[in-house]
């Protein structure tokens, strides 16, 4: 019987790459948390969260709309791909995560020529990128600073601080020990959750996001968007896909996905940022093209891009792919077919 077991980053990447990732994580820890002791970080984030929830009380409906609008403005791919957003600010008790499917399902499909270990590793990296993109995207609330100042002039500074605290701890290996203490005191708190759905009738993807406050809701919506992009890493076989999801999409994988994924995201985004392409939709569509690469090409691309060592062939592929995407988008926008000439 085929069993799909854990797949960890240090089994996927070379020691050199892991050293580089851990170095970046250490730098991120300093930037996000400074020299604050971890216990102080955790108690400060608890206090801040209470203040934010209190300040947002009475404005939840508007903040939900702003969060959806903000992400739509910042990610024009949402309009292009006709993605619907269902975003809610809820109480902590309303966030209950459903458990993933058991990983040792005896009805696991025959993977044929596909190597399930490679498929799992690819999915793990894509999950990391999804988490990384959502951390970076959460700080986009600055776009609506003026409006948020109207609600409460202290909110923006508090949002900035809570996000740094909430995500900074994932760069600290000791954070897990601190979380143990919090859990023992029954003070553990999920900040939110997101999932994507596909409405077959409307042929439309829906992002369903829930969070306990505005900045976490933005984070969850972006996560939902990148979850949709991430589905491009799968093939057409539903059974194989769900087997991989069951083995990899686990809560226990998320801390390290959050820790390292932002560096995968940064490195791939940099290719887009360094290009002369201004159409922001190209960014997510380029990620989709990277995800479509076969496993070996995908691992090589991600490893090299993280180490800033893309080969000339990889760089040329990336540049050409982004140009092709840009051309297609222009054709869609203008309705003109002869833009190639």
């Amino acid at each position: 019987m085929l069993h799909l077991v854990e797949v960890e980053y240090d089994k996927i990447f070379s020691p050199k790459t892991m050293t580089s990732l851990k170095g970046k994580s250490g730098e991120s820890l300093r930037q996000m948390l400074g020299n604050k002791p971890l216990r102080q970080t955790m108690s400060r984030s608890m206090a801040l969260l209470g203040e934010i929830i209190e300040a947002e009380d009475g404005y939840r409906d508007e903040l939900e709309m702003i969060a959806a609008q903000m992400v739509t403005d910042a990610y024009p791919i949402i309009d292009y791909a006709n993605i619907k957003i269902d975003a809610k600010i809820v109480n902590m008790s309303n966030i209950k995560l459903s458990e993933p499917q058991p990983q040792n399902d005896p009805t696991l499909p025959d993977f044929g020529k596909d190597d399930p270990e490679k498929l799992k590793a690819k999915r793990r990296i894509i999950n990391g990128i999804t988490q990384g993109a959502s951390i970076r995207g959460a700080f986009g609330f600055m776009l609506f600073k003026e409006y948020l100042d109207e609600i409460n002039p202290e909110l923006v500074a508090k949002y900035n601080e809570i996000l740094k605290l909430a995500f900074g701890i994932y760069d600290d290996e000791n954070a897990i020990a601190m979380l143990l203490s919090m859990i023992a005191q029954n003070r553990n708190m999920p900040g939110g959750e997101s999932e994507m759905e596909y409405n077959e009738e409307e042929e439309q993807f829906i992002i369903k996001a829930k969070a306990i406050c505005f900045p976490m809701l933005v984070h969850e919506i972006v996560k939902g968007l990148y979850e949709i992009v991430g589905t491009e890493g799968f093939g057409p076989d539903k059974e194989k896909n769900q087997a991989i999801v069951g083995a990899v999409d686990k809560l226990s994988n998320e801390p390290n996905d959050l820790r390292f994924g932002k560096f995968f995201y940064d490195a791939i985004s940099k290719i887009y940022n360094d290009s002369d392409i201004e159409d922001a939709r190209v960014r997510e569509l380029f990620f989709a093209e990277v995800y479509k690469l076969d496993e070996n090409d995908f691992f090589s691309f991600v490893e090299n891009v993280v180490n800033d060592e893309l080969t000339s062939a990889q760089l040329s592929w990336a540049t050409g792919t982004m140009k092709d995407i840009e051309k297609d988008l222009k054709k869609d926008d203008t309705g003109l077919e002869d833009l190639d000439e």
Binding site: I95, L97, S98, P100, Q101, N127, T130, Q131, P190, G191, G192, E193, S194, E195, M196, E197, Y198, K223, E227, G230, T231, F234, G235, P236, D237, K238, N241, Q242, V245, G246, D249, K250, L251, E254
Partner: peptide
């Protein structure tokens, strides 16, 4: 063709 698990 795929339904990812919800993420926290």
């Amino acid at each position: 063709s795929v339904k990812p698990a919800p993420k926290a």
